[in-house]
Nucleic acid binder design. Structure first.
Lengths: 348, 348
DNA sequence: CTGAAAGCGCTAACAA
DNA sequence: TTGTTAGCGCTTTCAG
C-alpha cells in the first residue's frame, strides 16, 4: 500500500526494517534491544548498533507492552492539581518512580468523581502496572476491581473497604496539636471550617478529632462553629459573617481552625476583604503547610504534613509490589507524623 | 498453560472470550465496541451487551492502538509542576482535550533538560498522537524530530528553529505596562530580577523589553540592576543586598521588576526576612499572576497572563491538527495579551 | 550464537 | 448482517 501524500504520520521504522538492513533476524534485534548480548557476536552487535543509530530507530512501546504484558508505567490520580498539596505529592511520587525505572502517567480528577472514574478506566485500559490514587472516595467499587489485576496504593485518604497499601498522615494528632496550640494561646472558642466530609477519611477524622479536643479541653462549643463549606468566596464570606456576628458572650469564636490549605487560603482572603485583622480580631490555624504560607500577612500557623515524603512512600510501596518476590504481603497503612509550625496567625 | 498460583496479574478477559460466550466472531464484537451496530441484529447486539457486562470486559487499549496506529492520547510536558503557572495551563489543556475525547498524559520536566528529554522519548515511544510542551529550550533537535511524526504545540516558549504552532503571551507589551506603571508612580531607578535567560524566549524578550523601556523613558540604568539569579533564598538575598546597598544617589533602585512569579515570590519572601517594607523601602512588580498574589502583604501588583486560556488554545490548535482535513496549514504563533493588575506593592 | 514461527488483543478488508 | 483472514510491531520458545 502506498503512503498517502498528506498523511500526518510518516511510516515509522520498525524492527523488521532494522533487521533487514542489518542482515539479521528480528529476534536478534530484539535480543539486542533487551540487552541480551552476552553471547552475541561482537560484529553483529556493532552492526545492529549502527543501523539503529542510522535509522533513528525506537521500539514501539505499545507492541512491546502488548507482548510482554507489562508497561512499566504507573498511573497517579490526584484530587486537585491546583492544590500545592497535590503537586508536592506528585513530585514525591515522580522522583521515586523515576529512580526505579518506571514511567508515570499523571491525572487530575479535579475532585470530581466522574472525572476520576474516567481516568481510572483510561489508565486500566492502557494496562498500567500500578495505580496511586488520592481518591474522591466515590469510586471504591472500581478501585477495588482494578486492584484485582493491578496493585493500588491509596494516598492521603483511606478506604477501609479496599485491602490496599495506604499512606496517610496522623490527622488526629495534627488536630490535637492545632487545638492545643490555640488553647495555650488563650483561645477557648474555636470554630472549625472544613470541606464536606462525607466519603473523605481525613476530613472526617479531623472533625472528630476537633470535637474530641474541644471536649477534653472543656472548651465552649456551638454547633454553628463547625462549618462545612466549599471554598468559594461567597460561601466562605457568608459563613464567616455568620459566626462572627454571633455576639461576644460565648457566641463569637476567637479562633478558626481550617481543615485544609484550600480552606485556609479562602478564609484568610475573605477575612482580609472583610477588613478583619488576624489574629487581633480572629486567629487562624490551618491544616497543611505550603511554600508561601509564610508570605501571607500575618504568616499563618499550620500543622504541616510531610507531603513529598508521603509521595515517595506511596511510590516505594507500589514498586515493592511490582517487583516483589511472591507471595504478596498483607496491605499496610503507613501513617506519617504531622508537625506544628508556629507563625503569627494565632497571636502570642 | 496453567495460571501461576502467585502471579500478580490474573488473566484478563479478551475479545475472543467475549466472542465465544456470545457465540459470534471477534469481528462482530469489535464492531459492537466501535459503535458500528447500525446493521447489527438487535438480538446479537443485546447478547453481546450482556456478555460484556457479565464478564466485565474492557478492551485492551494497547492492542487497539497498535492496530489503529492512534492512541487518542496527547502528552503534555510542563516546566515545573510546583509553579502555579504550570498547573493553570494544565487545567486549560485538560479541559479542552477531554471535551474533544482525547486522553492526557502529564509530565513534569522540572526545568531539567535531561528529564525533559526522557519524557519526550517516553511519550513518543508510547505513540502519543500529539505533544504540548513548555520546553526548557535544550531539546530542540528531539522536538523537531518528534514533530516529523506527531503534531507538536509549543506553549509559553518559542523555538524559531522548529516550525510548529506556538502559544505565547506578548511579553514586550507586558513589560511595557509594568515599567510604565512604575514610572507613573514616580520610580526612575528600576531593577529587574530574572532567571537565566539563555534558551528561554520569554525571559530574553522580557529583558530586552525592560532595556527598551528603560531607554525610552530615559530612566537611570546600571548594569548591576539587571540581575540574573536562581530562586534560592541565599542567591536572592545576596543579590538583593548588593543592589540595595548601592547608596542612595542614583545607585539604589527604588523598584524591582520580577520577570516571573517564582522570582516574585522569592524576592518578596527575602525582602520580608530582611525587614524591608514594600513599597516604602522598595517597590515590587511581578510578571505573571497567581491565585493568592493578593494575600501577600502588601498585595503584589502584577502583569497577568491568561494562563488557563493559553492552555485551552494550545490544546485547540493541537486538536485541529489531529482531526484536520488535509493538507495541514502553516504553523501559527498565537500571542495573548497580558494585563496589568494594580495592587499595592508599587506604592500609591 | 542466531533464526523461524507463533502469538499478544485487537481491527479491517474482503467475502459471504 | 456476520465471519474469515491477515496483520499491527514486538517478544519468546524452540530449533539448529
Amino acid at each position: 500500500m502506498v503512503q498517502d501524500a498528506y498523511s500526518a504520520k510518516p511510516m515509522p521504522v520498525t524492527i523488521a526494517e532494522v533487521a533487514r538492513k542489518a542482515g539479521v533476524s528480528k529476534s536478534t534485534i530484539s535480543r539486542y534491544l533487551n540487552g541480551l548480548y552476552d553471547h552475541m557476536g561482537a560484529d553483529t552487535r556493532e552492526r545492529i548498533s549502527q543501523v539503529i543509530a542510522e535509522l533513528d530507530y525506537r521500539p514501539n512501546a505499545l507492541a512491546r507492552s502488548l507482548k510482554q504484558k507489562r508497561t512499566y508505567t504507573v498511573g497517579a490520580i490526584v484530587a486537585n492539581i491546583l492544590n500545592p498539596f497535590s503537586t508536592s505529592i506528585i513530585r514525591g511520587i515522580e522522583d521515586t518512580l523515576k529512580a526505579a525505572g518506571f514511567n508515570l502517567i499523571l491525572c487530575n480528577a479535579d475532585d470530581d468523581p466522574a472525572k476520576e472514574r474516567d481516568y481510572i478506566t483510561m489508565l486500566a485500559d492502557k494496562q498500567i502496572d500500578g495505580l496511586i490514587i488520592n481518591t474522591t472516595g466515590c469510586n471504591n467499587d472500581l478501585i477495588a476491581q482494578v486492584n484485582r489485576n493491578t496493585p493500588v496504593v491509596l494516598i492521603d485518604r483511606k478506604v477501609p473497604e479496599i485491602q490496599v497499601d495506604t499512606v496517610t498522615v496522623d490527622s488526629a494528632k495534627g488536630v490535637r496539636q492545632a487545638i492545643d496550640h490555640m488553647v495555650s494561646l488563650g483561645h477557648r472558642r474555636i470554630a472549625m471550617f472544613t470541606l464536606p466530609y462525607d466519603h473523605v477519611s481525613p476530613r472526617l477524622e479531623r472533625v472528630q478529632a476537633y470535637q474530641a479536643a474541644v471536649a477534653e479541653h472543656g472548651l465552649d462549643f456551638r454547633e454553628e462553629w463547625l462549618v462545612q463549606t466549599d471554598i468559594e468566596e461567597v460561601s466562605i464570606t457568608a459563613k464567616l459573617q455568620h459566626i462572627l456576628a454571633l455576639g461576644d458572650k460565648a457566641g463569637k469564636p476567637t479562633g478558626i481552625f481550617c481543615a485544609n490549605n484550600l480552606i485556609t487560603m479562602s478564609v484568610v482572603k475573605v477575612l482580609k476583604k472583610l477588613g478583619l485583622a488576624v489574629p487581633a480580631d480572629v486567629a487562624v490555624l490551618g491544616f497543611d503547610d505550603w511554600e508561601w504560607a509564610e508570605l501571607i500577612e500575618p504568616p499563618v500557623t499550620v500543622v504541616a504534613q510531610p507531603v513529598y515524603e508521603m509521595g515517595n512512600k506511596a511510590a516505594t510501596l507500589l514498586i515493592k509490589r511490582l517487583t516483589a518476590g511472591r507471595p504478596p504481603k498483607k496491605p499496610a497503612t503507613i501513617m506519617f507524623e504531622p508537625e506544628l509550625i508556629r507563625r503569627k496567625s494565632c497571636g502570642e
